[in-house]
């Protein structure tokens, strides 16, 4: 049995979420006596080999230039062809913007079903079971797919990729059979804010809320974030007020994040905010109200004024990092 993992790269660099998915798939594969085959569109052979370090025995490498930019119809067709060639019934992929777009179309194409954005995956009685929070994190469901063909998308930053082992994957080149009609839908370009880490992919996030009182105080958040090498996030109150772009909003109607460290400054901790960040590994809250709900989920809290605590914390971290 083979589990296929769709690895994702951007500008030739494999995304960390892909390593996480391969690693998680290998753990499942071990229990099912299966092997993991990765699929990589673009990048280069060295990148394709490197996927072996996380547990892929083989990488199916697709170098077709037409797939340089994402085209969901062409990607779906290609992956379906690879599944057939590899006799794979199960596909796992990171629940990134690409993965979330691709996974449902793929599930229908292969006449299977999708368990999206899962935060844990295991084998029970020979079947793959997955878990994920629903209803803004107010409950958790455990699901199983009853069709033979199964697609799982894995929430980024939740599964650990660990260190690469140094093992290389066997690379097999594959040219999917595609025609022009498969490219009716295609991405023609991307606009990426340069030098900025997206909150959805960041390991460390410093977020600000209405407690900051106005956009003119945002440099406090930025200063702490720069010191930590963090991305900046925001509550919806701040985004709605126009202080920060929607791309930075964390929460149910913003982005779901699970960094190693999440620092919430002047954020009350409304349920919709928690829905987006409560799976963070370590949460720090700074709030002047000791009864703010954010302290219920925080690992460490400081009760105090952000205008005093945040600059002091930034200074303390600077000396800690020897900056």
């Amino acid at each position: 049995m083979t589990i296929l993992v769709l690895a994702e790269q951007r500008d030739g660099k494999v995304k960390k979420a892909s390593y996480e998915a391969i690693k998680a798939a290998s753990a499942v594969a071990t229990q099912l006596n299966a092997t993991v085959t990765a699929v990589l569109f673009g990048a280069d052979e060295a990148a394709a080999k490197s996927l072996g370090g996380y547990g892929a025995a083989k990488t199916v490498f697709v170098a077709d230039e037409r797939l340089h930019f994402y085209a969901n119809s062409a990607y779906v067709k290609s992956v379906a062809q690879i599944m057939e060639k590899e006799a794979a019934d199960v596909v796992m992929l990171p629940a990134t913007s690409l993965g979330k777009d691709l996974a449902p179309r793929l599930a229908v194409r292969i006449d299977g079903a999708l368990a999206p954005d899962v935060t844990s995956i295991a084998v029970e009685d020979g079947a793959i079971v997955a878990q994920r929070p629903v209803y803004a994190g107010k409950s958790v469901i455990k699901v199983k797919i009853n069709s033979a063909k199964q697609v799982f998308s894995l929430r980024p930053n939740v599964f650990s990729a660990g260190e690469a082992s140094g093992t290389e994957a066997v690379v097999e080149n594959f040219a999917p059979a595609l025609d022009d009609a498969d490219f009716v839908t295609k991405a023609t370009g991307t606009t990426i804010a340069s030098g900025k880490i997206d909150v959805a992919e960041a390991n460390v996030i410093v977020s600000g809320g209405r407690g900051l009182q106005g956009p003119e105080h945002w440099p406090l958040i930025q200063g702490l974030a720069d010191t930590l090498g963090a991305a900046t996030g925001a509550s919806r109150a701040v985004v709605d007020a126009g202080w920060r772009p929607h791309a930075e909003q964390v929460g149910q109607t913003g982005k779901t994040v699970s960094p190693n460290l999440y620092v919430a400054c002047g954020i009350s901790g409304a349920i919709q905010h928690l829905a987006g960040m409560s799976s963070s590994k370590c949460i720090v809250a700074i709030n002047k109200d000791k009864d703010a709900p954010i302290f219920q989920v925080a690992d460490y809290g400081i009760v105090g004024d952000v205008f005093e605590v945040v600059p002091a914390l930034t200074e303390e971290l600077k000396s800690f990092f020897g900056k």
Binding site: K142, N146, Q296, G301
Partner: peptide, 27 residues
């Protein structure tokens, strides 16, 4: 249904964290 919900549970309640202290002295 192709996707079967085996069970729905309340999330594990995280123990409320620790208040390290008050104000800048706590950093």
């Amino acid at each position: 249904n192709r996707v079967e919900v085996i069970e729905m549970t309340k999330p594990a309640i995280k123990e409320a964290g620790r208040i390290v202290g008050e104000g800048p002295a706590a950093v």
